[in-house]
Write a protein that binds this DNA or RNA. Structure first.
Length: 551
RNA sequence: GGCCCCAUGGUCAAUCGGUUAAGACGCGACCCUCUCAAGGUCGAAUGGCUGGUUCGACCCCAGCUGGGGUCACCA
């Protein structure tokens, strides 16, 4: 028996399959021309990052718009950093954005014919490939301890040479099969490294779907492909998973650009066709005048949950992210009067290459538009769902009187230019609190401060007269009544009159309206007063008018 | 530090060698108006620097500068 053969057998006696067997098990997909297979492959190490959502959304869009397949693969090879339950959270949150995988890992079980879709369950697949690589002399066991590796790096730093495990610095690269076998038999701990034939004096080129041609130093380091815990490193897992899953486009963050030569090197060694790469820009944040990646630790908006908890409609975030991804989306959106992300033709080529600063103002703009345009029933359901999870008090009120809340949400909504004052669902209740009698009573108890210079008698007289206001009539009829009351009490009945001779009046038309507004709403600002009064109803309005009087 | 990516207003950005250098957010003014949110009109605001190529450069090339990324048994 060939010594490498013997080594492979010694290392992985339990592996009986070959790469050919795997090829048969995972045959090419039968998809129409042009259909792309993409994947989102997060590590279950924490919450869903805004940048990850961006990547997932693009992967999903590329697959869907090409009639292909979008997969979800769990990259749980770093057992130390794995956070229990985060796989579920990731999937749940993604689903809130409508990003649900066609195939892949699901907490309740895999879906699809190219699994398993969690890497910790694919150990035998990796080992099958590695076993063959060892036979071919393209992978080998490395017996370096962390201390050995440290020493190598230090020496390299001192002699100012490129750090890394490569060439002459790859201590165990040229051990003979006999030496290897001996060490293994002696129980020396090992990892498996890839045996690179690369030369960093040379270049490797590849075409990035977003950036175009990229030229990098060829890989020559013998990267670890199988860790001491028997699980692969990212580099190797990416190559074998995306090969056997037949991924056609790798969408991943731009931080992976420098390691692409490693991946290409391995694809070459295995004789496999490399997929297309699309390296996406990172989402940035301005910090003390410098751009930096959105940071999980420092930035609340790095967590998708932040937006969900605040009550931004998920579509709003998606629309914002799309406006970053393809800046022509906004023009399309205006031209088509639509925010329909499915109808918009996304293009990887049109993606910008440098990282956008996260712009909360712009998100707010989209969010406000989206909420305003949302049909009432849809908005109501979304608000209810939000309140259920984030605002018990509001939720109780919604349950107690859903129709009342609907009327509140519907204020100035059904018109060409709907009212746009909610950026997020969380904004609604604070602005609508006054509609609830007990909340109004709290305001009334604290007392109202009417415009300076208005006599107590004037205010009270107005409030008393307001009690006769008509309900269920056209707005202009009602407003004429308000003007009349103002007239009785020395207010100008038009702002024009007031401007011409302010001294002749106790106040303007705005002032008399403010008296009413303050008395009923408890604030000098509110949406359309007429609608508010109709919603409150005559009885409650009369009650408030009495309570609002000055003592 | 080596290597790589990037460079148009405050932000997102269009232009693909000849333009008054689009548009959106934000900002300002005015109009509308019972307040606010809207809406309408108008406005301020952009090609990092230095060389080259060219009849002509925001666009092509080089260098510089600046920003970002990467150099793990993490992904």
């Amino acid at each position: 028996m060939d010594r490498n053969e013997e080594l492979a057998e010694l290392l992985f006696p339990e592996i009986t399959k070959t790469i050919d067997d795997l090829e048969k098990e995972y045959p090419a997909r039968n998809l129409p021309e042009g259909a792309q297979v993409t994947r989102f492959a997060p590590s279950p190490t924490g919450f869903l990052h805004t940048g990850s959502l961006f990547t997932a959304m693009i992967s999903y869009t590329v697959a869907k718009q090409s009639g292909g397949v979008y997969m979800f693969r769990l990259e749980d090879t770093d057992t130390k950093r794995t956070i229990e339950g985060s796989d579920r959270d990731l999937i749940d949150q993604l689903s809130k954005f409508g990003i649900v995988a066609d195939e892949g890992y699901f907490p309740e079980g895999d879906k699809g014919a190219y699994g398993p879709y969690r890497q910790s369950k694919r150990a035998d697949i990796y080992k099958t490939v590695i076993k063959e690589l060892i036979r071919r002399g393209r992978a080998y066991p490395d017996f370096c301890t962390p201390e050995d590796l440290d020493a190598i790096r230090k020496a390299q730093e001192e002699s100012k040479v490129l750090p890394g495990y490569y060439g002459i610095y790859a201590r165990d690269r040229n051990l003979t099969a006999e030496e290897r076998i001996e060490k293994i038999k002696a129980g020396t701990p090992w990892v498996i490294r890839f045996y690179s034939n690369g030369d960093h004096e040379r270049k490797t080129k590849f075409v990035d779907a977003i950036r175009g041609e990229i030229e990098l130093q060829d890989n020559d380091t013998d990267v670890v492909i199988l860790k001491s815990d028997g699980l692969p490193t990212y580099h190797f897992a990416h190559v074998v998973d995306d090969h056997f899953m037949h991924t056609t486009v790798i969408t991943r963050g731009e931080e992976w650009i420098p390691s692409t030569p490693i991946h290409l090197d391995m694809f070459r060694a295995l004789g496999w066709k490399a997929p297309k790469y699309a390296h996406l820009p990172s989402i940035m944040k301005l910090d003390h005048g410098n751009k930096r990646k959105l940071s999980k630790r420092k930035d609340a908006e790095a967590a998708v949950s932040y937006f969900l908890d605040a009550g931004y409609p998920p579509v709003a975030l998606k629309v914002y992210l799309m406006s970053i991804a393809n800046s022509n989306f906004e023009e399309w959106s205006i031209a088509n009067k639509s925010f329909d992300l499915n109808a918009f033709k996304f293009s990887l080529k049109k993606m910008s290459v440098d990282g956008a600063l996260f712009d909360l103002d712009k998100l707010h703009y989209f969010s406000r538009e989206l909420i305003a345009r949302m049909p009432l029933d849809e908005e109501f359901e979304a608000v209810k769902e939000y309140a259920k999870n984030h605002d018990e008090e509001f939720f109780a009120r919604i349950e107690a009187n859903p129709e009342y809340v609907k009327k509140i949400l519907n204020i100035e909504k059904e018109r060409k230019n709907p009212r746009k004052d909610y950026v997020k669902y969380g904004d609604i209740y604070p602005l609508a609190k006054f509609f609830f009698a007990d909340e109004y009573d709290k305001l009334a108890k604290a007392g109202f401060t009417y415009k300076e210079g208005l006599a107590k008698e004037t205010v009270n007289a107005c409030l008393e007269e307001f009690k006769a206001m008509p309900f269920g009539v056209e707005e202009n009829v009602w407003f004429d009544f308000i003007k009349t009351v103002g007239g009785h009490n020395g207010f100008a009945v038009s702002n024009k009159d007031y401007k011409e001779n302010p001294a002749a009046y106790v106040g303007s038309l705005s002032d008399i309206a403010e008296v009413l507004r303050l008395a009923v709403v408890g604030s000098t600002q509110s949406p359309n007063l007429h609608e508010i009064l109709e919603i409150l109803g005559k009885e409650e309005v009369l009650r408030r008018l009495e309570l609002a009087k000055l003592a």
